[in-house]
Structures are given as C-alpha cells and as structure tokens.
Amino acid sequence: MSGGHEHGHDHDHPHPFQPDDDAGGLTEHMALVAAVRELLIEGGIYSAEDERRAIERMDARSPAAGARMVARAWVDPAYRERLLADGAAAARELGVEVGPTRLIVVADTAETKNVIVCTLCSCYPRWVLGLPPAWYKARAYRARVVVEPRAVLAEFGTQLPDGMAVRVHDSTADMRYMVLPARPEGTQDWDEEALAAIVSRDCMIGVALPRADAKAA
C-alpha cells in the first residue's frame, strides 16, 4: 500500500465510484426546460450569452449586501426602524437591488433569538445573502430547527442564555427573511465597515451570533 491509502487488502477489485450529481439522466422536466430554452434562444427572445450573464450575476450575490444593512442599522436608529418596517425598501436605500423580494427583517433582542428556515423547500433571501449553504437546503436542518432550535444552534456552536426565547420563522410562502442580530459588546467605537465585517451569512440566517473577536473569514 502507498500514498496513505489503507484498507488492509490488495487492489485486485474496482472501487465503486460515487455517482455524479447529474448521473440520473434526463427527467421529463429537464427535457422540458432544455426545449423551452432552445426555443427562446432560437426565437431571439434572449441569447445564450444573456442567460450565462444572468446566472453569473445571480451567483455573484453575496452576504456582504445583508451585512451592510445590518451595520447601518446598528449605527443609525432611524435606518433600523425603516429596515424593520420594510426590508426591501431599506435595502434599495443602500443601493442593494432586491428585485421583487418582499423582505421581512426580524430583530434579535436581549430576550429573543430569531432563526430562519424554509421547511417546505429552500426559500432564501438570495438578493441580500447570495446562494444558500447546502445545509440550509438539507432535510435535517429543515425538519429539526422548527422542533429543537436550541439543539441545532448548539451544533453550530451557538449557546443561548437560559432566559432567551427562540423565534423560528418558516418561510413558507411569498415573504423572505433576514435576521438583524444584536450588536455585540466591545464594538462601541467601530465604524460601519468594521461592523459589517463581523456580520456573517450565518448570523443573518440566525444560527450564529456576531462576535467582536471574530474577524470575517
């Protein structure tokens, strides 16, 4: 045996390959999507390059947009009020494009911790947080966080004080959600840019808390 590859036998048999994600062949719906796409391009409705650019633009969205909104809310109480009243309008105010999103921002307090899920599928505020992490779309997170949010948060390394209530928000229909976490101790003198740097994606989903001693990865 060599190369750190050990399983106590000689290689006289083939290894099973992990199946590729797209190894299942073309389903009826995939064929339908491919056909509609070809028709739209052939008909000159849009070009393949238009489509590629649109996908690139969607994939380029990042949690930095949400973090800017949180940091502004921490330093500007009037902005915080507008953010809680109408998340989409408050996003546009900072130049964050949110398309048709109806955004509800839920604020953590000393007594309450908010966390977001979509139990039915994987609805996610992509315009302000970018693409969702794989675990957000996983059955385990979606099924468990509504029942035992404290246990799930603890697995993310987030321990809640005893007196704190948890509010889980299930994004089942037309709204999208973002958590406005509480501003951590020890950041009184920080400017907006420094504040935004400690507001990670997971803080805005609600499974983590921003920390003054944590520099964003």
Binding site: E148, P149, A165, V166, T172, D174
Partner: peptide, 20 residues
C-alpha cells in the same frame, strides 16, 4: 412551540411563525 410539539418543545415561550 408547546402548542405544536407538546412535551417535545424545548422551552415554554419559544415560537414558530409560519406564512399561511
């Protein structure tokens, strides 16, 4: 949470909010 999960709920005072 107590209404939804009964004794399985982690704590009194926890809530789940759902669009319907």
């Amino acid at each position: 949470a107590r209404e939804l999960w009964g004794p399985r709920a982690e704590r009194d005072g926890d809530t789940v909010e759902v669009e319907i």
